[in-house]
Design a protein around this nucleic acid. Structure first.
Lengths: 172, 172
DNA sequence: CGATAATTGTTATTAGTTATATCAAACGTC
DNA sequence: GACGTTTGATATAACTAATAACAATTATCG
C-alpha cells in the first residue's frame, strides 16, 4: 500500500503515538512543529523575516529597505569604491546591483562618478542628502528597531546572538 | 533555562577586541562593514543563506528543499490536516502551496485525499515513499547538516541560538 | 609594441519566490 | 433556501536572484 485510499485509512496507518503529546494542541488548532523547532534553518528564516519586517516598519518614513540601508552604510564607511566592490561585499550580484543603484541615484542619495584612474569603473559617493538620510535612518534603526530586539533578548544575549550569526556566516 | 542569562553562558566564540575594527582594511581589498556587523538583520540573513545552502548540499541526494522538507516533517507530525492548516503553519500562502504540493505529489511523497467530513478540503498524507524519504532526509540533516553546525558553535551555543531565534520569531 | 585575456558596468533574460485578486464548489447559519 | 464564509485552485503581478552576453577599457606578456 503506497497511498491510502481513504482519509480514515491514512489516519489509521500513521502512528497515533502514545503519550508523546508533551507539546500542546491535538485539537486547539495549533499544529505540532515537531523536529522543525530544532531545525536551525527554519528558526533562522522565521526570525529573519520578522526582523526585516520590523526594520521596514521602523524605517518606513525614510522609505529604505534593509538592502538599501546596507548600501548607504557601506558607502559611508568605504568612500572611493566602485560598484563591483560594494556589490560583492554585500553579496549582491553585479547585474542586480545596477537597478539598485539607479533607484538610490534617482533619489539623489548617492552618485556614480567616473574614476580618473580606471575609466571603466564608477566611484560611488554618498550625496549630502544621502548622508542626511543615512543619519536619520541610523537613529531610527538604533532607537526603534535594535532597541526593541535588545530589550527582548537582553544586551548580552543580543551580543551573543550577533556573534554566533557572524560566525556562521563566516565559517560555516 | 530558556535563554542563557549571560553572553558568557551562551557563547564562547571570540569577541572582537575594541579598536581592532578601526582600520581593518584601507587597502587590502576588504571593505569596512562598519555598523553593518552590528545589524542583527544583516547577520541573520547572511547566516540564513549559508545554512540553507548547506542544507541543500547535505540533502541533495534526496532532492529536497528546506521548504519541502519542512512540509514532509509537518505532515508526519500532523496527520489528518488539510492544505490550509499545513500552509499557514509554515507561513506559506495557500495559492503558493498548491504548486508545492503538486511537486511533492507528483513524486509520490504525499497525497491529497478528499475529506469525508468536508468535501472542500484535502486531507494530506505522507505516502510510504514519503515516509521513507523523510527518514533518510532526517538522517542526512542530523548527521551532516546539524552536526556541522553544532560542531562549529558547540552544543550549548547551538541550543541557545535556537532558543533565541525561536523567541524572536514568537515574540518580536 | 601588439595580440590576447580579463575586468567594469550594463542589458536582457530566465528562474524562483512572494503576494493579490478571483473563482467554483462546498459548507454554516439564520 | 438565501447569504456569507471557507477551501482549493488559477491567474497574475511584484520582487529577488542568477546567467549569458556585450562594449569599453585595462592588464598581461610574448
Amino acid at each position: 500500500m503506497t497511498v491510502p485510499k481513504t482519509a480514515a485509512d491514512a489516519v489509521k496507518v500513521s502512528r497515533p503515538v502514545a503519550g508523546q503529546d508533551l507539546d500542546a494542541s491535538s485539537d486547539d488548532g495549533l499544529l505540532h512543529l515537531g523536529e522543525l523547532s530544532g531545525l536551525l534553518g527554519y528558526s533562522l528564516k522565521r526570525a529573519q523575516l520578522r526582523v526585516f519586517e520590523d526594520f521596514l516598519r521602523c524605517v518606513a518614513p525614510l522609505q529604505l529597505t534593509p538592502a538599501q540601508f546596507s548600501v548607504l552604510l557601506l558607502l559611508d564607511q568605504n568612500p572611493g569604491r566602485n560598484q563591483t566592490e560594494i556589490a560583492s561585499t554585500l553579496g549582491i550580484l553585479r547585474p542586480n546591483f545596477v537597478a539598485m543603484l539607479d533607484a538610490l541615484e534617482s533619489r539623489e542619495l548617492c552618485a556614480r562618478m567616473r574614476s580618473a584612474s580606471d575609466r571603466r569603473s564608477h566611484i560611488l559617493v554618498l550625496t549630502d542628502k544621502g548622508r542626511a538620510v543615512l543619519a536619520r535612518a541610523k537613529k531610527l534603526v538604533a532607537n526603534k528597531h535594535e532597541a526593541r530586539l535588545i530589550e527582548l533578548l537582553g544586551p548580552e544575549n543580543h551580543a551573543a546572538l550577533l556573534e554566533m550569526l557572524a560566525k556562521i556566516a563566516r565559517e560555516f
